[in-house]
Write a protein that binds this DNA or RNA. Structure first.
Length: 633
DNA sequence: CCACTTCCTGTTTTT
DNA sequence: CAGGAAGTGG
């Protein structure tokens, strides 16, 4: 029965895809060009392994780039296999995989079971409190974070150029974050990796557990993640990596394209399958993208993507006078398209940097076009959402100084820096947690009476017999949070709506049988903008080129394709950085199914400086005129 | 000791 | 244009 199903699966696939799906044993490298059915291959391969009885779903580890991709794969596989739940499946991002491993082995790692995850912002706050305490001013806290993260990640020594002070701060930071019973993004990768590397028993436990490994977006993995994967690889070496070196765009974050370029040399007897048919785009768009990729300096090997003969419009390049006009033309064009059969959700606008979204937003508002922005500050990073999350985190873990210092004075309770450091000092001296210390000092009359509401708030959140969403609602009443928002922010209505959205998310989590509030909090911190892209809603999507990876739209606009923006002026001198800019542009144009419109203008603003007579991106300039139609306004 | 105002700097991309 | 530093009033 299952074998019949497995055979039926293959009917939907082309020969290259079948090869990738059925080559289950030993190392396999799948180079998947844009629109080549990559997600289909991974989900079908997963289903094929299960249906042919080679492994159970929970014996396959599948690492994806975003949570959204993970969820999509789960539901697609559910559909194909007829399985009815995914609870013990291992389809995760590297970070959520790390979190799961830490959860299983928290004790060995020196954590308590109620540990919390710190995001970049929390981490920065902890570093700020350390540099302030030790009066370290030579480098900005952001720079300090960058340096110590780099060394913590690679498990290196801090080089002498940064002096002993940074070394000291690194050591203090690592002690502090453990005292807070917290882990940060670096820990989520390095703690599990080192545990597996050094502990044979744990290593064998996972090696046995996962009979098959699949890694998506392999071109964007970094060296540690690659080592991690090799560490858990079983003796049969059943590993399949999927990716496209032409679409590697996270080098600046430590990703190493060489991982995919050398994979077949690194693992003996590696099979290679190249998926080169693009089912997504018209011939015109494919021809243009092939031209763009052919000019890369460093490349694995020439790869000409083939289309399926779909004919469409020649991509258009429009150059305008200034950016106001540029945004306006996009808005007008969208209006036009939507009067001619397109919906708003068929359309996306991509740009290189976040601040560019403002210009487009204004133009879209003027034309009454609904839109949603997917880049910039993510939902769980919003001040009001993070405040509530910090209350919840502190109610779980009263050693969490970062959350404590964030909320102790929100709303204002007359507690400033000095009182805060008194509480911290007291807690260290007397080995008491932050809440106990606060209450003790309050009794002694050393803290203003307004602190009462803080104590009550934490008590409310700790009432385990009630639903979490109910407790959060009570918390908001107790601290009169909405009044606080309306008194402090002009856009308070939007902020209140965000808090309501958070409560809704908590309710959904509870109703779908979520385990604990820790689970909700720790996983929500790992949610990002790209996880929220919803194709169902009818609005135009605005996002950075980076976020656009993995998505597709019938109509794609690329805004501000100016030299200096794409490629970014900081990355034009070094050929390998310039290549990455080109790949980013390549990712952008290959998202388009039918219509591609690229725009630029002759006057642009970078910050407060106006630059006149700027040229179009070199990536456009070099394109032969038969591949793109240029319009100068 | 805290809160509020004003002036200043500095903007790539994000799991 | 926002987010920190510094200065002043309560």
């Amino acid at each position: 029965m299952d074998l019949v199903l497995a055979k039926n699966l293959l009917k939907d696939l082309d020969t290259d895809q079948i090869e990738a799906v059925t080559s289950t044993e030993g190392p396999l490298l799948v180079i998947a060009g844009p629109g080549s059915g990559k997600t289909r291959v991974i989900t079908y391969r997963f289903a094929y392994i299960v249906l042919t009885g080679k492994a159970k779903p929970h014996e396959i580890l599948c690492v994806t780039f975003t949570n959204k991709a993970a969820n999509e794969m789960k539901s697609r596989i559910l559909n194909i296999t007829g399985a009815y739940e995914t609870r013990n499946w291992w389809i995760k991002t590297f970070h959520s995989l790390g979190l799961s491993i830490i959860k299983e082995f928290y004790e060995v790692l020196g954590l308590k079971n109620n540990f919390v995850v710190y995001d970049k912002d929390d981490q920065l706050n902890l570093i700020k409190s350390i540099t302030k305490k030790y009066n370290f001013k030579e480098l900005s806290p952001e720079k300090v974070m960058e340096i110590i993260d780099d060394f913590r990640y690679k498990n290196d020594e801090v080089p002498d150029t940064f002096g002993d002070k940074i070394k000291e701060i690194t050591k203090i930071y690592e002690e502090e974050i453990r005292k807070n019973n917290a882990v940060d993004f670096v820990d989520l990768i390095t703690l599990p990796y080192r545990l597996l590397k050094n502990d044979e028993e744990v290593r064998n436990y996972y090696r046995k557990k996962w009979k098959y490994l699949m890694i998506d977006e392999f071109q964007d993995t970094d060296p540690i993640q690659y080592e991690f994967i090799k560490t858990i690889l079983n003796p049969e070496k059943n590993i399949c990596v999927v990716g496209d070196d032409d679409q590697s765009i996270y080098g600046w974050r430590g990703a190493n394209v060489e991982n995919i370029r050398n994979f077949d040399k690194d693992l003996k007897n590696c099979k290679i399958v190249i998926l080169k048919t693009n089912y997504r785009s018209t011939e015109e768009i494919i021809n243009l993208s092939n031209y763009v990729s052919s000019n890369m300096t460093f490349r694995r090997k020439e790869k000409i993507v083939k289309g399926t003969g779909k004919k469409g419009n020649t991509p258009i390049f429009i150059e305008t006078f200034d950016q106001l006009e540029e945004a306006k033309i996009i808005a007008k064009e969208i209006k036009f398209l939507c009067q001619n059969g397109y919906n708003y959700n068929d359309i996306a606008i991509f740009y290189r940097t976040n601040y560019l979204s403002r210009l487009i937003e204004e133009a879209l508002i003027r034309e009454n076009i609904p839109y949603k922005i997917y880049s910039g500050v993510s939902f769980y990073e919003r001040t009001e959402v993070k405040d509530i999350i910090s209350y919840i985190r502190f109610s779980i873990n009263q050693n969490d100084f970062v959350s404590f210092s964030r909320i102790i004075n929100v709303p204002k309770r007359g507690i400033g820096e000095i009182t805060l450091s008194k509480i911290l000092e007291f807690s260290i001296k007397n080995n008491k947690n932050l809440l106990e210390s606060t209450l003790f000092l309050k009794k002694e009359g050393k803290i203003k009476p307004e602190i009462e509401s803080f104590e009550k708030a934490i008590n409310i959140l700790s009432q385990n017999d009630q639903k979490i969403s109910t407790r959060v609602r009570k918390l908001i009443e107790e601290i009169d949070y909405y009044t606080y928002l309306s008194q402090n922010y002009e856009n308070y209505e939007e902020r209140i709506e965000n808090v309501e959205e958070l409560i809704r998310a908590i309710s959904d989590f509870e109703e779908s049988g979520g385990e604990s509030i820790e689970e909700f909090i720790n996983t929500s911190i790992l949610t990002t903008n790209s996880d929220n892209v919803d194709e169902q809603k009818n609005y135009v999507s605005l996002m950075t080129l980076h976020i656009s990876k993995g998505l597709e739209f019938p109509v794609v606009f690329i805004f501000a394709a100016n030299e200096g923006i794409i490629p970014h002026f900081k990355n034009t001198l070094n050929p390998s950085l310039l290549d990455e800019e080109r790949r980013l542009f390549y990712v952008g144009i290959t998202r388009a199914k039918k219509n591609l419109i690229i725009t630029s203008s002759r006057i642009i603003r970078i910050g407060s400086i106006k630059h006149s007579l700027v040229s179009p991106s070199r990536f456009i300039d070099e394109i032969p005129s038969n591949l793109i139609k240029t319009i100068r306004v």
